[in-house]
Design a protein around this nucleic acid. Structure first.
Lengths: 174, 174
DNA sequence: GATGATGCGTCAACCATGTTGACCCATCTT
DNA sequence: AAGATGGGTCAACATGGTTGACGCATCATC
C-alpha cells in the first residue's frame, strides 16, 4: 500500500467511482490503453520514416538500448516474435550500421547485441520523441497518477511474465 | 484535482518518486504500456483464432459494439486506417454474418454499422476475455490507481483527438 | 437544376511484419 | 561421443496495412 496524494484529470475525464469495475469503466480503460499506446508509438513514426525504418526496427533498437549486450534469445522473448522474423529486422539494423553483434564471453554460442555510435544516436532521437509525450502526460497527471498508471499496467501482465519486465529496470544502488 | 486514497502496487514495483520525470521512469512507463497493452490484446487471440478472425476484425467489432449504428467514416477515424483496409475487414465480417450495414436515415450516403445477433454474441465473448484481465488489474491496484491510469493515458492522447475518445463514453443520465 | 463535394465501394499493386517448417552449424553439457 | 542449445538461413505463406485510380449515389449550393 502506498499513499497517493492527488491526481489531476484532463477535462472531460471523470475519476473512477466506487463502481469502477463496471463494464463502462472497463471499456474506458481498454479504449484509453488503445489510443494512448497508439499515439505514443505513432510519435516516433516521422523519425523512423526519415530513416527508412519501421516500428519493428524501433522495438528492437529500444530494447537493445535498454539492455546493451543482451543475447538474441532475450530479445526474442521481449518481442514475442520468431527468430526468423527478428533476424530480418536485425540483419537490416546491422547492415545500416546501427547494431553490432558480439560473440558471448561466457557462452560463445550467444550473440550479444549492442548499438553502434550511430545506433545510440538514433535511439536517443526516437526516445526523445516518446519522452516528450510521456513526461508531458506524467507531469500533467501528477506523481500519484503515475504510480497508479504503473500499478494497473503491471497488473495486466501475467504474473509469470513480470520478472521479464522488471529485469529491464536499471539497477541502481541505494 | 481529485483526492486519491491509496494504490496497491504489485511486488517488485516501486511507486513513483518525486523524480518521476527522469529517463528511467519514462522508460518504465513505455515498457509497461507496451507489455500491458500486448498482453491485454493477446488475451482475445485464442477466441479469434477459433473463429478464424484476426485482431483487425476484433478492433472493428469492438467499436461497432461500442457505438452501434456508427457510420463507416467514424470507424475509419477510430481505427486510423484507410478505407481500403477497412473495407476488406468489414466485408469479411458482413460475409460471416457478424455485422450489418444500414443506409443512413439522415444522410443516405452513409452506411451505418451494427452487429448482428451473432456479432453481439461474439463481441461479448471477446470482451469478456479482456474484461477478466482488466477488472483483475483494476481490483488489485485499487480505485485511486485506476483514476491515475486513466489520467496518464488521456494525457498521452493529443488534445485534438481526445473528443473522439470521449465520444465513445456511454452517455448516462444523472 | 446543373455542379461540385462527400461518403462509400472496389480493383490492383505493393509493403511491413509476422508465421511455419526444414535444415545447418558451432558450441555447450553430460 | 552424443545430445541439447543458441543462432542463422531458405522458402512459402498470412495478416493487415499502404497508395493510386476510378465509379456511383447522394447531398449541398449557386
Amino acid at each position: 500500500m502506498v499513499d497517493a496524494s492527488s491526481v489531476t484529470l484532463p477535462p472531460g475525464l471523470s475519476p473512477a467511482s466506487p463502481l469502477f469495475l463496471r463494464e463502462d469503466e472497463v471499456r474506458r480503460g481498454i479504449e484509453l490503453l488503445y489510443f494512448g499506446y497508439s499515439h505514443m508509438i505513432r510519435g516516433a513514426d516521422a523519425i523512423l520514416e526519415r530513416h527508412g525504418l519501421g516500428r519493428a526496427h524501433h522495438r528492437a533498437l529500444y530494447f537493445i538500448a535498454r539492455k546493451p549486450g543482451l543475447p538474441v534469445s532475450d530479445l526474442l522473448r521481449l518481442l514475442s516474435i520468431t527468430k526468423q522474423s527478428l533476424s530480418r529486422v536485425l540483419a537490416e539494423l546491422v547492415a545500416r550500421g546501427l547494431v553490432r553483434n558480439e560473440v558471448g564471453a561466457l557462452d560463445r554460442r550467444q550473440r550479444l547485441l549492442r548499438l553502434t555510435e550511430a545506433g545510440i544516436e538514433l535511439e536517443a532521437e526516437l526516445f526523445e520523441a516518446l519522452r516528450a509525450r510521456v513526461t508531458e502526460a506524467y507531469g500533467r497527471a501528477g506523481q500519484a497518477a503515475v504510480t497508479g498508471f504503473w500499478a494497473v499496467l503491471m497488473g495486466l501482465i501475467p504474473v509469470e511474465d513480470r520478472a521479464l519486465v522488471l529485469s529491464l529496470e536499471t539497477s541502481r544502488a541505494g
